[in-house]
Every structure is written in structure tokens, then in C-alpha cells.
Design a protein around this nucleic acid. Structure first.
Length: 493
RNA sequence: GGCGCGUUCGUCUAGCGGCCUAGGACGCUGCCCUCUCAAGGCAGAGACCAUGGGUUCAAAUCCCAUACGCGCCA
């Protein structure tokens, strides 16, 4: 095992969405590629928006995707009713790591690198509005940077609760050396003295993140692009605390078809939604890997385990990627085609159950699912393609109109009824031989027999290869359906 | 508003100064295969490499502006 340690650190304020899943995947791939550690940390410091359901949803999503974490929540509960974690770093929930933040704050306060700020939200907002009105850069005034003891006491006497800010340089530059984006320079004049502890006493995102990444020994922070502007402040925090910062890699964002950040407006964004739509986890992993990453060969499809060996940060794209559901479906189809019928059935279990096709003879199910194997794009397609083998035929009105209700069809069906009732061995080869002979004897085109026969027994124009389908259906069902089709053609009354 | 990031076929991308009259994949069109639908095979359309300036014998590739998009700050 290498020294590499990476993390995925979602906030439990909703389900795991596509963008988050992609970030998690890239971290996971990077860890696996380098034989490092992948850990999951829950950033639940937003007490208002964090929910336990979200924690569960995130864990479920990660598990479904097959992104196993070496350290982090187990999903179980402790005897005290809190979430349990595995790994050597204590709890992997930020709310349970408060002492570490307090300790860091204390040391920054003691060294004078941070100070208590008594400005209220209203005061800061007013100053900002004023600056904006005067077309100046809205920036923290620095009023509380050098408060005397008396001034502090006075504020405290007013009942003001302080926040804690990290003193940041007013001049010079801070550079971020990003693995993906290169050398990015920020002017310090743009940086505000960073609030690290809120008036409520809770840590801010940027602060908790730094403290945890340090204590958890994170070597590479691989995260979304939107965090790049936060990075200079974080770098200053590492410096103030005397810690070595990790390496950073900022991933481009995932956009919806209209070019804006992928969101609910664009349809399904929750990972679990793709599960219920009938996608395979391996499809999601493969497709998501291709959003913002590629290898020099432009390879599209990866064998199981192959991605983990080929992924690298050098292949990551700087520009944002648009999510393409059409390609996702194509890819799912290719994965489904590679899967043995038995595994397709297992994966499609919920959908087969919903269609009432679960409690049928497994062997037959397997053989008919196999017949249609190259046609599934989604697992939800499976029941609809094989239901007529187990249930009564439902005639598609269009198919009836197009294929059955034509001159000369009824005599053909009548002839087939006689012919097929006489076939001794009701299997593919003898059936084909008999039916082709029938076609020849009538002097018609094969299609004039095959097509009506197909619709008569299956109710539709598309379906499995004809003679095998007849075999699987069995003699009784075939004869019964031929009769049914003929009654359909009989003049009303 | 400031700062940052980005800009190659409709979409995902290859490309890191000459191999590019820009390659692959999805999608699209046509043909082949064929009992239907698929799958598969083959072929094709599709990108003046955002725009304008440089640098260079030579630029999609380097530099500078502009435009547009996105993000961050509050």
C-alpha cells in the first residue's frame, strides 16, 4: 500500500448527485490505481440542512456504484445511537470532530494569527452595500483585527458573540499549483480575512475541511472546480497552522444539456434514480469516468477492473463536460449484452417482480431472456420483451393493422394451424423445415407467412428469431394463439 | 462588480510547434447481413480548432487582447 490517501467528503444535505458521484469515482479510481487509501468523510456541519436520510442515501449510492471506502462510516449505529465509523482517525463525521477544530482555533488565537471579530452580519452587509455603491471592492474592513481588551469587553457587554477570523495578507499573491489546472495565481488583496469559526461556535466549511484533511493525512484533494477559488485561503490556513498542504486537483464541472450546472431541471440527477431507471453500476462508473477524463487512445469501454489500472489525473479535462443520457443508454446496452442471461435476470429482479415475472420457471425465463439479449438498453426493458412467453398475448393494434389484417392472411394462419398441429417434434429445426416447405408449397414469399405467424403468436412485429420463439412458446400456446388471431380477423358478429 | 476557470464535429473527446487536407466514441444517414426488431460489418455527412492580433520557415498547439459561457466571493 502506498502513502496516498484521498477522500470524498460530501455534505449530507440531499441525495448523491451525478457530479458528486463523479468526484467520488475519480478519488476512488486514483486511490485504487496507486494502491492508496480512499476514505469517506461526512461534512455535516450545516446543522440545518444535514439529515440522516441523506447520509443513508449517500452510503447506499456509493455501495451501489461499487465505490468501497477503506475508512469512514460503516452505516451502522453505535450503542449511543450515533453513526459508527471504521478507520484509525476517530469519527468520520465532522460534527463529532469538534475538539480538533477547537484545538486548531485555540492555537491560531494564541499565536495571534487569528482574532475574534465582533462585527454583526448587519454591519458587514451594510459595509458591503456601501462599497458596492461606491464601486469599491467589498472587503472586510479589518476593524476587529487589533481590538484592545477594553473594546472587546465592551462588545461582549453588548452581548455580541464573536466569530473567529484568520488574518490574511493584504498584499502579494497566493499561488495554487493544481495538478489539472497548473499554476493559478490569486492576488491576496482579493482575499478576505477568513471566518473560521462562526458566531454559533461551529467551524466554517473551509476551516473544517483543512483541519480534517490534515488530521486524516490526506495527500491529494481531488474535488470539484467550484472549490478552486477557496483554495488560496485554505493554503493560508495550512501555512498559519504550520501544516504541509496536500496536492490539489480540481475537476471540471458536469453540465446539463443547456450548458448550466447539472441540476434537477435537467431530469434525473440522483445516482439512485439511475438505478431505478435500469442502469447497471458498471455502466455508471464507465460513463462517469469518461466525463472529464480520457486516455490517449480515446478508449470508451473498459473491462471490469481495467479502469482502476488506467485512470490518471493527467488525462483529466479542464473544460466542463455535458452529460449525455443517450450515450449512457448505449453504454448500458453494451454492458447488458456482455452479461450472461442469469446475471441479467438477477440485476433485473425488481423490474421482473414488478411485472409479475419473477415466480416463473427460472430455466425458461433464462432461455427466453437470452433470446432477446442484444435488445436491452435498460434493465427495465427486460420484462416487456419476454412477458408474452408467460402471459396471454396482447395484440398490438398497429401490428394487427399492418400485418394481420391483409388479404390472404387468414388462409395462411388456417394452413399453419393444420401444419403445426401435425409437427411431431416441436423444436427449432423441424419447425423451420416444415414451415419453409409450407411456404414453398404455397408459392408465396417467406415474409407472407413468417410475419403473420410472428404477430399471431407474440402480438407484435418485433421479437426473437421466429422458430426458436415457437419452440420456447410450445405447441399448445402456438396453436391456441393461432386460433385467437384468426378470431381477431373474423368479421364482427 | 471583482477575481478565477474554460472555449476542437450536436455531445464526450484525441491532439501538447511540422505526422492534422484534425483521429476515435455516441448520435445521425446509407449499404450489407437477415424471418421481424436488434446486434454486427462497411461507408458517409458532420469541426474554417470561439474571434482578432502577434511570435515562428511552420500554430488547434506558444503569447496578448476581445467575446461568450461557467464558477467563486459577499
Amino acid at each position: 500500500m502506498s502513502d496516498i490517501r484521498v477522500r470524498f467528503a460530501p455534505s449530507p444535505t440531499g441525495y448523491l448527485h451525478i457530479g458528486g458521484a463523479r468526484t467520488a469515482l475519480f478519488n476512488w479510481l486514483f486511490a485504487r490505481r496507486h494502491k492508496g487509501v480512499f476514505l469517506l468523510r461526512i461534512e455535516d456541519t450545516d446543522e440545518v440542512r444535514s439529515t440522516e436520510e441523506s447520509v443513508s442515501a449517500i452510503l447506499d449510492s456509493m455501495r451501489w456504484l461499487g465505490l468501497d471506502w477503506d475508512e469512514g462510516p460503516t452505516g451502522e449505529r453505535t450503542a449511543q445511537g450515533t453513526w459508527a465509523s471504521k478507520g484509525p482517525k476517530g469519527s468520520y463525521f465532522q460534527m463529532e470532530r469538534m475538539p480538533l477544530y477547537q484545538e486548531a482555533v485555540a492555537s491560531l488565537l494564541a499565536s495571534g494569527k487569528a482574532y475574534r471579530c465582533y462585527c454583526t452580519k448587519e454591519e458587514i452587509e451594510a459595509a458591503r452595500q456601501k462599497a458596492l455603491a461606491e464601486k469599491r471592492l467589498p472587503r472586510y474592513s479589518g476593524r476587529c483585527r487589533a481590538l484592545s481588551e477594553e473594546q472587546r469587553k465592551a462588545f461582549e457587554a453588548e452581548g455580541r458573540k464573536p466569530s473567529v477570523r484568520l488574518r490574511l495578507p493584504d498584499e502579494g499573491e497566493t499561488a495554487v499549483d493544481d495538478i489539472i489546472r497548473g499554476h493559478v495565481v490569486f492576488e491576496n488583496a482579493m482575499l478576505q480575512d477568513l471566518v473560521i469559526l462562526k458566531t454559533t461556535g461551529g467551524p466554517t466549511y473551509n476551516f473544517a475541511c483543512v483541519v480534517d484533511d490534515h488530521h486524516m493525512g490526506i495527500t491529494h484533494v481531488i474535488r470539484g472546480d467550484e472549490h478552486l477559488p477557496n483554495t488560496p485561503s485554505q493554503l493560508r490556513l495550512y501555512e498559519a497552522l504550520g501544516w504541509t498542504p496536500p496536492k490539489f486537483a480540481h475537476l471540471s464541472m458536469i453540465l446539463g444539456p443547456d450548458g448550466t450546472k447539472l441540476s434537477k431541471r435537467h431530469g434525473a440527477t440522483s445516482v439512485l434514480e439511475y438505478k431505478t431507471q435500469g442502469f447497471l453500476p458498471e455502466t455508471m462508473r464507465n460513463y462517469l469516468a469518461l466525463l472529464g477524463w480520457s486516455n490517449p487512445e480515446s478508449q470508451q469501454l473498459f473491462e471490469p477492473g481495467e479502469l482502476e489500472g488506467k485512470f490518471d489525473l493527467a488525462g483529466c479535462q479542464k473544460n466542463p463536460a455535458t452529460f449525455d443520457p443517450v450515450k449512457l443508454e448505449w453504454m448500458n446496452g453494451t454492458y447488458l449484452r456482455k452479461l450472461p442471461a442469469g446475471r441479467v435476470i438477477e440485476a433485473a429482479e425488481p423490474f421482473l417482480k414488478a411485472a409479475g415475472l419473477w415466480d416463473v420457471p427460472r430455466e425458461k425465463l433464462c432461455s427466453v431472456v437470452d433470446l432477446e439479449r442484444e435488445k436491452y438498453k435498460l434493465l427495465t426493458d427486460v420484462p416487456g420483451r419476454v412477458d408474452f412467453f408467460f402471459k396471454d398475448v396482447v395484440y398490438d393494434p398497429k401490428a394487427v393493422e399492418k400485418t394481420l389484417k391483409k388479404d390472404g392472411v387468414d388462409p395462411v394462419l388456417e394452413g399453419l394451424l393444420t401444419l403445426l398441429s401435425g409437427v411431431a417434434e416441436f423444436t427449432e429445426k423441424p419447425l423451420e423445415a416444415a414451415i419453409r416447405e409450407f411456404v414453398a408449397s404455397r408459392g408465396v414469399k417467406p415474409g407472407a407467412v413468417f410475419h403473420p405467424l410472428r404477430v399471431a403468436v407474440s402480438g407484435r412485429t418485433d421479437g426473437p428469431t421466429l422458430f426458436l420463439m415457437l419452440e420456447k412458446l410450445g405447441k399448445d400456446a402456438v396453436l391456441e394463439r393461432l386460433g385467437k388471431a384468426r378470431r381477431l380477423l373474423a368479421p364482427a358478429g
